[in-house]
Amino acid sequence: MLTWIAAAWRGRLPLWLTYWVLGVGGNMSFVAVLLALLFFGRAAAWPWLWLVYGLSLVWFVFIFGAIWRAAGVYPGHRLWPILARLGVLVGIVRMTLEGVLLAGLAGAPP
């Protein structure tokens, strides 16, 4: 398991795999869990929500770095690494806005 993590972090996995499977797939997994906690959880779900959000931050720091590096060594058409890196930047903005939203919801009454 550590082998693919190290390979991803170093940009040695294919860009399509890093971006679509690990990046988008990982993102969708965390979003699904967060939405389930928000919509089906009760007030007691808030600690779990923050735990999942914290884990997603760790994952996204890792995957954003992996995508950035994989884009830097991509041998194909120049457009794909540019779009991948743009996706990383959009993801950073999204994660920031998501954190602000969650912080605002945490202050709302249950």
Rank of each mutant, 00 (worst) to 15 (best):
L97I: 04
A45M: 02
L89C: 05
L86D: 03
L13G: 03
A70Y: 12
L102V: 03
P47E: 12
A45C: 01
V93K: 12
L38M: 09
G11L: 15
A103T: 07
M1K: 10
L51T: 05
L57H: 06
I92W: 13
G72N: 13
I82K: 15
A45V: 06
E98F: 03
G65I: 03
V100L: 05
A32Q: 02
I5C: 04
R42F: 03
V21P: 01
W68I: 10
G23N: 03
M1R: 13
V21Q: 03
V100Y: 04
R42I: 00
R12V: 05
W46P: 01
R12C: 10
F60P: 00
W50F: 12
L55A: 15
L37K: 14
L86T: 09
G25F: 03
F60S: 08
V24L: 15
L105W: 05
A103R: 02
M1Y: 13
M95P: 01
G25T: 08
I67N: 10
V52I: 14
L105V: 02
V24S: 07
G76W: 15
I82F: 14
L13F: 06
W46Q: 10
P81Y: 01
G104C: 07
G41M: 08
L22D: 01
L13K: 04
A106G: 09
L38P: 10
R10A: 02
R85W: 02
A6T: 06
T96A: 10
L105A: 04
G76T: 15
W46N: 07
G54E: 04
V52G: 08
L51C: 07
I5S: 02
P109T: 09
V24P: 05
G41S: 07
V61N: 14
L49G: 08
L51D: 00
W48N: 00
W50K: 06
A103S: 04
P47Y: 14
L34N: 07
G65E: 11
V52Y: 08
L51P: 00
L13I: 06
V24K: 11
G41D: 04
P109K: 09
T18K: 06
A70G: 15
G72V: 13
L2P: 06
L105Y: 04
V58R: 04
A43C: 00
R10V: 00
V88Y: 14
V33E: 04
R69I: 09
S56D: 02
F64G: 08
V73Y: 12
L101F: 08
L89N: 08
I67M: 11
W80C: 02
A36H: 06
A44I: 01
V31N: 09
A66E: 13
G11D: 15
F62V: 06
L101Y: 09
F30D: 01
W50G: 10
W20M: 09
P109E: 00
A6Y: 03
V31K: 10
W68H: 11
R12Y: 14
A44Y: 01
M95G: 10
A44R: 04
L97C: 05
R69P: 05
G65H: 11
I82G: 15
Y74T: 08
L17I: 05
V93T: 04
T96M: 12
L15C: 14
V31Y: 07
N27G: 12
R85S: 03
L37P: 14
W46F: 10
I63S: 11
A45N: 01
P110N: 07
W46T: 06
W68F: 12
A44K: 06
S29E: 00
G11E: 15
W59F: 13
S29P: 09
